[in-house]
Amino acid sequence: MSLINTEVKPFNATAYHNGEFVQVNEESLKGQWSVFFFYPADFTFVCPTELGDLADNYEEFKKMGVEIYGVSTDTHFTHKAWHDSSETINKLQFPMLADPTLAISRNFEVLIEDAGLAERGTFVIDPEGRIQIMEINAGNIGRNAEELLRKIKAAQYVAAHPNEVCPAKWKEGEQTLAPSLDLVGKI
Rank of each mutant, 00 (worst) to 15 (best):
V24P: 03
F77C: 06
T88K: 15
P40F: 01
M64Y: 10
L149K: 10
D126M: 01
L92V: 10
A13K: 08
Q156W: 00
E119N: 13
L29D: 03
T78Y: 06
N90Y: 08
L181G: 07
Q93W: 01
S72F: 05
W33Y: 13
A103Y: 05
T101H: 07
Q23H: 15
N163S: 09
T122M: 09
F21R: 13
D84V: 00
E26C: 09
A41T: 08
S2W: 09
T88R: 12
E146C: 02
E109K: 14
V124W: 00
T88N: 08
Y157Q: 01
Y16C: 09
M96W: 01
V35E: 07
T44A: 06
A15W: 07
R130N: 15
F21T: 11
Y157F: 15
A13V: 04
K91R: 14
F37V: 05
F21H: 14
F36A: 11
L148G: 07
Y39R: 08
H79K: 00
V184M: 14
G139C: 05
A118F: 06
I89A: 06
E128P: 01
I152E: 00
E60C: 00
Q132Y: 00
L97G: 11
A154M: 04
N57V: 08
H161L: 05
T75K: 07
D53M: 02
K80F: 02
V66A: 13
M134I: 01
P179A: 11
F37T: 02
V8S: 12
K30A: 13
F123N: 05
E113G: 07
T75S: 15
L51N: 02
I89S: 10
G31N: 07
P95N: 05
S72Y: 06
I152D: 00
G173P: 10
Y16K: 09
T44G: 03
R143C: 06
T122V: 14
Q32D: 08
R106W: 02
K30T: 12
S28H: 07
Y39K: 11
I136T: 14
T6N: 12
Y39E: 10
V158N: 04
E20V: 12
M1K: 15
R143Q: 06
G185N: 03
G70H: 07
A55C: 05
D74H: 01
R120D: 05
L177H: 02
Y58D: 06
L149C: 03
K171Q: 15
T78R: 07
